[in-house]
Design a protein around this nucleic acid. Structure first.
Lengths: 204, 204
DNA sequence: ATTACCTTTGACCATATGGTTAAATTAAAT
DNA sequence: ATTTAATTTAACCATATGGTCAAAGGTAAT
């Protein structure tokens, strides 16, 4: 039972740390707040994770993985480009709706310490080149115009991520604080984004 | 000369505060660091701006204004929709290239305190409705397909902002840390974004 | 029951940090 | 020159915060 208990506490701590760090950022987060959120005291927190840095590193790694989509999984084999765009936008938008604070958290921290990305990129093992090749092939096949694949990829991710991280501005400024409208808007995007991109680059 | 000197010091403080706050965020910024950056001591900083909050408020207001484009100015009268998209993407991208850390700063802080937006929105006086009307009109004229104007507007802003704030991820992951390629990529977008959007929604 | 080990707690420490204050300095006005 | 007001500085203060430590509690093995 020893291990079960410890796992339990460690798990509680990690969940609490996610909540607090992702909301407040590294500098904004307080160890006491994390302890309280986890229902334990500060000493125990330091017993499990010696320092704030170590705890942060654990949370950041989790967040980074959640933010960088595992493209290869989403882009299953034997699909048309439009279908692939559609699946990507759909899956990624859903991830982001469920974890709306992760992108900003990751971007904010990575801006403060751009170096940390190098360790993470390997661990995550995402392959943007894969998507790039798919797009290049479709150009050769004459399905889409000769566009820069990098532009298309960044467009796709931009269109998925930004509406989520800009919610506190978009909601009052565009949707007059009507959460339902905003929610519907995001829901629509699951299909709109793929159509939008495909329409733009397809050969008519 | 009294006023000139004080203006000068106040100006130095504000510039220093912009640098530090925008880079480190409200919680990450240190009053001492701002003072040092401004070439003065901490007491003088508190003499000009009683509290960290007051200084932050000044910086945040500036940053918010820089982040929210004054749409009406960019969208001069008597232009085609494509021309308007083009001008917007061009002008906004340039602003963002010159102030690459502002969007993330604003979004991060506004996420921590979503309320603050209400005071700012009035002061800035941006009118997204204006662009919405323009798009609606073009739909009626049959220039573009019957799309949701809100989707188009958010797409435009997403495509401009995200590639800037995601630079620390994009640069290593997509451009193998080649800054020139990234820079060229942004430069291309000044025209690419408008073409991209217009192609997608125009009636062929 | 005793040993040994893991977990949890409360009291405590050192330092960083936002902020204050009184005195010194400077500049303008009389 | 003297007064007056604004500006600048150095020394301090109170508090928050990350982190430590020794003791207590609990659990399983002998």
């Amino acid at each position: 039972m020893l291990n079960e208990l410890s796992d339990n506490t460690e798990h509680k701590i990690l969940e609490a740390a996610k909540t607090v760090f992702i909301k407040e950022g590294m500098k904004g987060a307080r160890m006491q707040e994390i302890a309280t959120e986890a229902g334990i005291n500060k000493s125990l927190l330091h017993y499990y994770f010696r320092t704030k840095e170590k705890l942060f590193a654990a949370v950041f790694q989790f967040a980074f993985k959640a933010f960088i989509p595992k493209i290869d999984e989403i882009l299953g084999p034997g699909l048309s480009l439009h279908e692939r765009f559609s699946r990507f936008a759909n899956a990624y938008t859903e991830i982001l709706i469920d974890n709306p604070f992760i992108p900003l958290f990751v971007l904010h921290e990575i801006n403060r310490h751009p170096e940390i990305i190098y360790k993470l990129v390997q661990q995550v093992g995402t392959k943007p080149k894969l998507l790039e090749e798919i797009i290049t092939d479709e150009i050769k096949k004459g399905v889409i115009k000769p566009v820069d694949p990098k532009q298309v990829i960044i467009n796709m991710i931009s269109l998925c991520v930004f509406p989520i991280i800009a919610r506190p501005i978009i909601l009052p400024l565009i949707f007059e604080d009507d959460q339902k409208k905003y929610r519907k808007f995001l829901e629509d995007r699951k299909t709109e984004i793929a159509d939008f991109i495909f329409n733009s680059i397809k050969v008519q």
